[in-house]
Amino acid sequence: MSTPVEVVALHVSPVHAYEGRPADGPRPDPEPVARDHVVVRAGLGLVGDRYFNHPAHRNAAVTVFAVEALDDLGTDLDPLLVRRNIVLRGFDVNGLARHDVFTLDTGDGPVRFETHRPANPCAWMDAVLGPGAMRGLRGRGGMRCVPLDDGVLRLGPATLT
């Protein structure tokens, strides 16, 4: 079954910004993280991302997140702050189970992903989104996936199957 969704944010960063103690604040990115499109490589992740072709993250190289989880926190938050790679509107990402396969097509052809594990929120969410964000995102932090196809994803309307 095909579901219309919207890709509201795409995030690629070569470095970790949220490491160490949240009280010390995030480390600045050397380049802007927002993208209007991303290049996906099967089994490797998103070109230019810190998890691309990283052996320890082979099954978790791409994180998909539902922006509705932020909407439910009750404030107008920038979806890039959660540092999830693909932020969607219109699909319950957290309803996916391990090893589910879904396809996302933003107009350049379908790209399949296999889910592997939840992306649990950490204490950094309280530091960058506001007090209570970590608790509010518990069980709603997105899913870590491995791409099964090469392709390109773009911001805007998309189809998820």
Rank of each mutant, 00 (worst) to 15 (best):
S2K: 14
V7A: 11
H11G: 01
S13Y: 06
V15F: 04
V15K: 05
A17T: 15
P22E: 11
R27G: 07
R35G: 07
V38M: 11
V38G: 09
L44Q: 13
L44T: 05
L46Y: 02
L46K: 10
L46I: 10
G48E: 00
R50S: 04
R58Y: 00
N59S: 09
A60K: 12
V64N: 05
D71S: 08
L77C: 06
L77Y: 11
D78R: 07
D78W: 09
R83E: 14
I86G: 00
I86F: 00
V87M: 01
R89A: 14
F91S: 07
G95L: 09
A97S: 14
D100M: 08
D100W: 06
L104N: 03
D108G: 06
D108W: 00
G109V: 06
V111C: 03
E114C: 05
A119Y: 04
P121N: 10
M125I: 09
M125C: 06
L129W: 02
L129T: 12
G130D: 04
G130E: 02
P131L: 09
P131H: 14
A133G: 08
A133F: 06
M134T: 15
G136H: 05
R138I: 12
R140W: 07
R140E: 07
G141Q: 09
M143Y: 07
C145S: 11
